[in-house]
Each structure stands twice: as structure tokens, then as C-alpha cells.
């Protein structure tokens, strides 16, 4: 039968595609786990210093990932702290207060921003730090603050879109409930619309955290270094996990360093994947969240 033939071929092709993707994922995860898992120990983080001293005693860690972990954490915290208010406000404005042509233009603007490659964002951050260096103080250069600011630009579109689409997804009957009781638009927003779209917004923020934690190109241009210790101020250079992984893959000096690189890759992979998993779980729950049934 000629007809059954090409159909079977299509089906087989689809399965082959699925197999290719699955084996790609298995290769990446398998390699990271096989090479990294044996090294994920307290020693990986703190090297020769004991965990207690590093955490509470302020003892510097020279041969562990601890400073990179802390640096990444600061970066993420800073970037999200900057992106959340700006992104929320913009998303709310787009969903609730802008109409017609203005809204269309703004949406396109943020689509463009979402598409800007991270290395260009990093380049922008770098030029901002050059500008600060020239105009404000020669002491300023690429640093934690500049990197967090650049990462903020990178993830801002995620937060804006998540907020906007969550708010726009609020059903009409919920939207007018409070209004019909005499609430003004601001009250409606604060007491009904935002609580109702909370999960969608939260999943956007989680994705933003994940992106900040994994992005390398931005920090590569805005002040990441191989050894800096735990950063003491926002104006210091810093270490970060993804950069450490990149650094090790290009030029590792010793087998210990390579082992730390494998460990770092596994940790970063684990953190990113769990962040994305939680984000998707939160968002899926929104879909099944049939609150307003009769």
C-alpha cells in the first residue's frame, strides 16, 4: 500500500526528532551529572576552609566556588530587585492604562528589547560604565551594580510580558465585579486584578531569576572576574558561576580546577532547571485554577 508508506515515514521522522532531542538532553544532563556529581561536596564550595568559618567567620575562600555562588546570588537579587518594580509597573500600564496605537507601539518596543542579544545588552552596560567612569568618578568601572543593571535590561521584557498577559487574561466577569460595586480602577487593580493574576506574575519573575542566574555574555562584559572573593560592595568586581564554567572550559590550570568546573556546571544546571520547573508548575496551575465557576 503506497498510502500507508509515507505516513509511516512521517511518523518515524517525528519519533526520530523526539529521540534526537531526548538524547541531546540526556547527553547534557548525563555528562554534567557523571563528571560533576562526585565533586559536589562541601569542599567544592569552600575548598580548604570549613563551611562555618566561611559562612559566619568571614574567612576568605580561595579554592572553592563559594565566592562565585555568592556573586551569582547578589547578581540575581540585584537584577530582579531592579526589574521587578519597573517590569510590574510597565506591565500594568500596558494591560490596564494604554489603548490602541500607543499600546501597539509599546508592545513592539518590548518585543524588540526581548530580542536584543545578551552580548549587546552587555555591551550597552559596559558603555554605561565607561560613561560613569568619565562623567562621575574615575573609580567607577564595570562592577556588580553595572552587571545587575544590565541583567535587569535582559530580563525586563519577561517580567513585563508575564505581568501584561496575566492581567489581560483576567476574565471580563471578574474584571467588572469590583467595578460594579463602586470600586475605582486603582482599587480594582490592587484588590482584584493583581491578586487574581499573581501566579502568572510570579512565574514570570521566576523565569527572570533563571535567566539572570545562567546568563554569561552580559556579565562577561560588565565586570565579572576569575578571582575576586565575596564582593564587599556594589562597586566591586565579582565572581559568578556561569563565568567560572566558561573560564574553566577555555583555560584550566589544574585538574582540581577542572573538577570544580564540572561541579559548577552541575550546580548551575540544577538551579536553572529547578527554577524553570517551578515557574512552569506555577503557570500551569493558573490554567487549571478554575476559581470563578458557578
Amino acid at each position: 500500500m503506497k498510502r500507508g508508506c509515507w505516513e509511516r515515514a512521517v511518523r518515524c521522522g517525528c519519533y526520530a526528532a523526539g529521540f534526537w532531542v531526548v538524547s541531546g538532553a540526556v547527553a547534557v544532563v548525563g555528562f554534567a551529572v557523571r563528571q560533576g556529581a562526585p565533586h559536589v561536596t562541601p569542599k567544592l564550595l569552600f575548598g580548604g576552609v570549613s563551611a562555618r568559618e566561611a559562612l559566619f567567620g568571614g574567612a576568605p575562600v580561595f579554592d572553592g566556588l563559594w565566592p562565585a555562588v555568592v556573586g551569582t546570588f547578589y547578581l540575581v537579587a540585584g537584577a530582579v530587585a531592579l526589574a521587578a518594580p519597573l517590569g510590574l509597573a510597565t506591565g500594568i500600564y500596558l494591560a490596564e492604562f494604554s489603548r490602541g496605537r500607543l499600546k501597539e507601539v509599546l508592545t513592539v518596543f518590548f518585543d524588540v528589547l526581548a530580542g536584543v542579544p545578551s552580548v549587546v545588552v552587555g555591551l550597552f552596560g559596559f558603555s554605561v560604565s565607561l560613561l560613569l567612569h568619565k562623567m562621575v568618578s574615575p573609580r567607577l568601572g564595570p562592577c556588580l551594580l553595572v552587571a545587575a543593571f544590565s541583567l535587569m535590561i535582559l530580563v525586563l521584557p519577561y517580567v513585563i510580558r508575564a505581568t501584561q498577559s496575566a492581567l489581560e487574561g483576567v476574565p471580563q466577569e471578574v474584571r467588572i465585579t469590583a467595578l460594579s460595586l463602586g470600586a475605582d480602577p486603582v482599587q480594582n487593580l490592587a484588590w482584584v486584578l493583581i491578586p487574581h493574576s499573581f501566579r502568572g506574575i510570579a512565574s514570570g519573575l521566576l523565569l527572570a531569576v533563571g535567566r539572570c542566574a545562567e546568563d554569561t555574555a552580559v556579565i562577561l562584559l560588565t565586570g565579572v572576574v576569575v578571582t575576586a572573593g565575596v564582593p564587599r560592595s556594589l562597586l566591586d568586581p565579582f565572581e559568578a558561576l556561569p563565568f567560572y564554567i566558561y573560564y574553566v572550559s577555555t583555560q584550566y590550570a589544574s585538574p582540581e580546577e577542572l573538577e570544580r568546573g564540572f561541579g559548577a556546571a552541575l550546580i548551575l544546571l540544577g538551579v536553572s532547571v529547578s527554577l524553570f520547573a517551578v515557574a512552569y508548575a506555577v503557570r500551569r496551575a493558573v490554567g487549571h485554577w478554575a476559581l470563578y465557576r458557578a
Binding site: A25, I245, S249, L268, A277
Partner: peptide, 24 residues
């Protein structure tokens, strides 16, 4: 499971892809 896996894969850090590429 395939859909879940694909969703999770969007979270794989680029640098890890590169890292595995360098060594494999």
C-alpha cells in the same frame, strides 16, 4: 513527558551546552 522535558530544556544554561560541547 516529552512536553515536560522540552519545557525544562528551555532552562538549560547556554554555558552548560558550551561546556559539554568542549569536552564531548
Amino acid at each position: 513527558p516529552l512536553r515536560r522535558l522540552v519545557q525544562l530544556m528551555t532552562g538549560f544554561p547556554t554555558v552548560v551546552y558550551g561546556f559539554v560541547g568542549v569536552f564531548v
